[in-house]
Amino acid sequence: MASILLKNVVKSFGTFVGVQDMNLDVVDEEFLVLLGPSGCGKTTTMRMIAGLEHPTEGEIRIGDALMNDIDARDRDVAMVFQGYALYPNMSIYENIRFPLRMRQVPKAKHDDLIRRAAEMVELGPFLDRKPGALSGGQRQRAALARAIVRQPQVFLMDEPLSNLDAKLRASMRVQIKHMQRELKVTTVYVTHDQIEAMTLADRIVIMNKGVIQQIGTPDDIYSNPANTFVAGFIGSPPMNLIAGTAQSGTFSSAGVRVPCPANLSGNITLGIRPEDCQIGGDNLQGQVYGVEPTGDITYLTVRTANKNIEIKAGREFRAPIDSAISVGFDTSRLYFFGEDGSRVGVN
């Protein structure tokens, strides 16, 4: 069990900068999720921690030890790959045993450790099968078992659930979280799926274009997004971002009018979450563009002159297309962003 420290880490590939001046402190036993769109540098960051990539500049420490020049095989980290990366020529038992053999764990202990790891991921009956004879979910559990069997200092997981179907993903999510709590191993988890990030993480690091946008607990990131990128990335559907102007305590845009802090002026972007809007009110006037009932909730899209606004309406809500509608916002949950995209008007 160990903390991880990244200090001024830069990774460039030729002229392309994959990770820019990154500072990150992962606390011992923490479950940290790196979240961002494709190509944001999250996987590169994880690969640097694993030792599969070498930072161009900066320091990487695991525990207190400087890792920059330590080979991947000597770092005592275990990684779960997106494509499982099981050894196809070995049975699942041999797959799980491989790290024990390579790290010279006494042979007498192997069987016990393997069976315990397999039990943890409920893979007991499949130990003598080859990876090719298992389903995607079973393969992913085998990969997990291989990672946990030798009790490493750090777990790294690179989008481990993205090859699974939605139902399986949900159950594996719970399993991973439970397992991490039980084993108390510092974990770094890479994903582009915000639901995974929100449900699993102790803290989330949101990245874009190689730069950290915000670090915080899931609650924090949801309720206090630092900029329009984070606001537009988190939430399902994500926060509505409406460009407009602020003048003497009022924000206005086509069809939208809300109070704003008096010190704001000029071009401002208003952020309002779909769940903080109610049908009826005087903050937004527009036409119904789409109504999508899903059973427990109805998604309503309202068209204004500039933009479509997403709203979560009650499960019973129905309205004809193109009918006029007015919407009220929960004015205590409004977010304002300046021209550079960063949050403004916060006390």
Binding site: A50, R73, G83, A85, Y87, M102
Partner: peptide
């Protein structure tokens, strides 16, 4: 050969 498998083996401690 799948490079991911090689990487997995490296991290498992294999030369």
């Amino acid at each position: 050969q799948d490079e991911e498998i090689e990487e997995a083996a490296r991290l498992d401690g294999a030369s």
